[in-house]
Amino acid sequence: MKILIVDDEKDVEMLFRQKFRKETKSGNLELIFAFSGAEALSILGESDPPSVVYVFSDINMPGMTGLELLDQVKKRFPQISVSMISAYGDSDNYNKAIKSGAKEFFTKPIDFESLRNEIQDLMKV
């Protein structure tokens, strides 16, 4: 199962790779990373249908924001689940994201236990 993580901070890759080391080692999970909304869209557009099943995106990014990316993905690839991961966990952002079709809303600092549960639920399906 391939999931895409979108965040403008590069250290996110190192963090996620280590946090999901076991899952990626066993081959059940493949992580790919994009550091902007535009990069994320081009990765998703590379194959048809896209190989990615789940996108986790930051909200506050230069250029395309996570919420704009969410709208785009939902429009072009409605089959892909999108969840937001943001430091801005206020009700405004939360409501906007859920209204635009986000599956979940995770706040930073990320609680990887809940993120792992979310991904495992998806792997079972």
Binding site: E9, D11, L15, Q18, K19, N60, A87, Y88, D90, T107, K108, P109, I110, F112
Partner: peptide, 21 residues
């Protein structure tokens, strides 16, 4: 304050999660 506080959460995300790892 809200702006600063949110931004502080980003480095804290790394501090907490990398130390946990």
């Amino acid at each position: 304050t809200a702006g600063i506080a949110h931004e502080i959460k980003n480095p804290l995300n790394f501090v907490n999660n990398f130390s946990e790892l």
